[in-house]
Write a protein that binds this DNA or RNA. Structure first.
Lengths: 239, 239
DNA sequence: CATGTTATGTGCGCTACCGACCAGACAAGC
DNA sequence: GCTTGTCTGGTCGGTAGCGCACATAACATG
């Protein structure tokens, strides 16, 4: 896992070898810094990104400056679905939430690959549907669930995209993702720490008890997870 | 407008004549009753629906019974994107929010049409991207905007899908869509009525002053509208 | 026109979250 | 060492929206 490898990304790993090989030479390894903006609202994308160890957050920033994440993308997906959906851009921004690596692919190459209507197209469309589920669930969760439940959901989704149990993440950043006040995160995280579920210090969060998180999270986490594995499980071609 | 016609649906209307004609014989006019469930969460879809005068709401119902709409579909779109996205089903439900007509198309025929990779595919993908924008914006709006602003957004989006200014709609139903308390709608609608923007009686709402709504709505309405027209404006083939 | 049903209006206490602060605590650089 | 910036902890008032319990009003039906 330590040396970067395209097959750390689920979508790339799922491609049949015959499809992947010709693509491999066009994949460019990039290192994404925390806070880096992959694209601004309405901006043109020159590349699509397949994260391996990085995590990217798709979120909308309101006129007031307030923001809210609609979905996150990690090694299970791709950043830049609008490139093959035909819109080329979106009103959302894509910001690096966890520093790490990603493989990027020229937008023309991606579009060309998509148009071949092969396994890659199927994978991309299915992933896009999973992304829609994540967005719809975020909308419902924002409406009905408590800040603590949402924090648990967010932690679990992030954890699933990381090799370790340690997140490099300030409370302020989490608050921006969830679109809540930083103090709200302080309080909820404090509760979780007191319960022995997580432990944190300046800019680091360690998950000690994953089951504890799962016990506190709302149903939304399971819905997103289940739907992702349903959509992508039967399209894994390679080991 | 009074006699049902497939080209009342934007997507069908946008198809080039050569593409539309062979499809026309497979389109079946159906009448959708208020409250009818087109598909249940996880259920299989036998048809896709192109609404003309009907409006369908996509929403998730939580374990607690609470619900929240993630997007609405009217004559600008299609119900059943999961049929061509490859998932066949979704965790959301589709419920008729405004009774009216729709043309339905057999799921195999739709899928077959999609695979031809012609104008229909492009239209469907672009519409799907617009749908994603609507979902993402709903998530952000649920987080940050007031009930009154959300009601205005919902009314405007619904209005855009209707030929008239009269909605047949109880406050209870709106509350279910927005995922708020019925009393909250009573209050917000009361304010709007006092301001002369709308007028209502048991199960009917008339919009008197569209500009008034637009003055009170949050930015989310414009984002969704603008994105929809951006994505679909350059793919209109027929008059 | 009497009756049942469904839709709307109102009042209450309650809680989760917001906004605006300030204070302490840790990390890194000089 | 000391300083400076960043991160976390706590407080205090304010409020939007919830849950609940009703009261009233419009319509539909026989």
């Amino acid at each position: 896992m330590s040396s970067p490898n395209p097959s750390q990304n689920y979508l790339l790993a799922a491609l049949p070898a015959a499809e992947f090989e010709p693509l491999a030479t066009h994949l460019e390894l990039v290192s994404l810094r925390l806070g880096e903006m992959l694209y601004e609202p309405g901006g043109q994308l020159s590349h699509a990104y397949f994260p391996t160890t990085a995590i990217v957050s798709l979120h909308y920033v309101m006129a007031s400056g307030a923001s809210a994440e609609s979905a996150g993308v990690g090694n299970e997906g791709i950043v830049g679905v609008s490139l093959f959906m035909g819109g080329n851009t979106t009103p959302s921004a894509a910001v690096v939430q966890t520093a790490g690596h990603a493989y990027r692919l020229d937008s023309h190459k991606l579009s060309q690959e998509f148009k071949r209507a092969g396994p890659m197209q199927q994978l991309l469309l299915r992933y896009t549907q999973a992304l829609m589920t994540q967005m719809a669930q975020t909308a419902a969760c924002n409406r009905h669930h408590s800040l603590e439940q949402q924090l648990c959901r967010w932690l679990l989704l992030t954890l699933d995209r990381l090799p370790s149990n340690d997140l490099i993440m300030t409370q302020e950043l989490i608050a921006n993702m969830l679109g809540v006040r930083r103090e709200g995160i302080t309080e909820a995280a404090g509760n979780l720490q007191r319960a022995g579920v997580i432990s944190y210090r300046r800019g680091h969060i360690a998950v000690l008890d994953r089951a504890g998180l799962e016990g506190r999270v709302c149903e939304c986490y399971a819905v997103v997870r289940t739907e992702l594995s349903r959509l992508l499980s039967d399209v894994r071609y390679r080991q």
